[in-house]
Write a protein that binds this DNA or RNA. Structure first.
Lengths: 148, 148
DNA sequence: TGCGATTAAGTCGGGTACGATATATATTGC
DNA sequence: GCAATATATATCGTACCCGACTTAATCGCA
């Protein structure tokens, strides 16, 4: 009488759902890896984006991360509070805010260099397969963004 | 003197970022398509998951959507408020809440059947390419989830 | 039978996302 | 020179997402 219904997976054929689910799964893996740094995944991306630069504007960060100031400003303020980044008005154009790593932020960014390797291992895929997936997703993203 | 820095794209080789960016892009496309129904993307997934059933538990929905009750309960309550779903305690096991489509919810779910086609068009990819991408992402997701 | 362990939902707090709007600064046109 | 416009951030409200915890109901087994 074992009449358990089939596993409820009505999303076959929904590529969007596979992207969504992979995003959730990535987020959880990153959470595990980043918790000891007190970082979230988007904050990690900000540190990576700032690494090796001295002062990107909020707008440039937004272009890199596909986010707007309504998301970035509060996040950057939190990171300022935790001492990872500094926010300063551009002296020439006072509208612009330049974000740069503090010494501590640069230190943390340095310690994060092992993360990509750990994530690759967790993904269980070869670098080549990941690379192919990445290329395919980038094409998809570009199309989706152009369709607006 | 046009020394604009190269486009800030320091995320090559980060498959996670491609997944993240594709998720954001999908979300925006769906927002455009779903706004006239007053639906968000996760709410859309719930309607699809409930289509053709009469009463899934919150836990079953969570298994299907990879979400927990802390996310689903408030969302389902919102959908109850907007008249799309009904929430009822199971009469046999009072711990369980069964979620089903209302008549209006079933009606809306019916009208949503054109969405996948619209999204496929927006993706600019062939169904075959999307299918391959989906399979690859599902493997990735499974690995990431197993690595916990 | 009865009570501790398990399970299903719900609550709470913090952190993204994003549409709409506000504010301040810079640029343009006349 | 200065008003109209454009641009860069910031603010606000709503909705996910999740870790940690709570509450209520059921189960298991001595």
């Amino acid at each position: 009488m074992d009449q358990t219904p089939p596993p409820p997976a009505p999303f076959e054929g929904f590529a969007c759902f596979s992207v969504y689910a992979a995003g959730l799964a990535f987020n959880r893996v990153y959470k595990r890896l980043l918790d000891r740094f007190g970082l979230t995944y988007p904050q990690y991306l900000v540190l990576v984006a700032l690494r090796g630069t001295s002062g990107r504007t909020v707008g440039e960060l937004g272009d890199a991360l596909f986010l707007d100031s309504n998301t970035l400003t509060p996040m950057l303020k939190r990171m300022e509070t935790t001492g990872l980044v500094a926010r300063n008005r551009d002296s020439v154009d006072q509208r612009v805010v330049r974000v740069s790593l503090t010494e501590q932020g640069a230190q943390v960014a340095q310690e994060l260099t092992c993360i990509p390797h750990d994530v690759t291992v967790a993904s269980g895929m070869t670098p080549e397969a990941l690379s192919a997936l990445e290329a395919s997703l980038n094409v998809l993203t570009q199309h989706l963004r152009n369709s607006a």
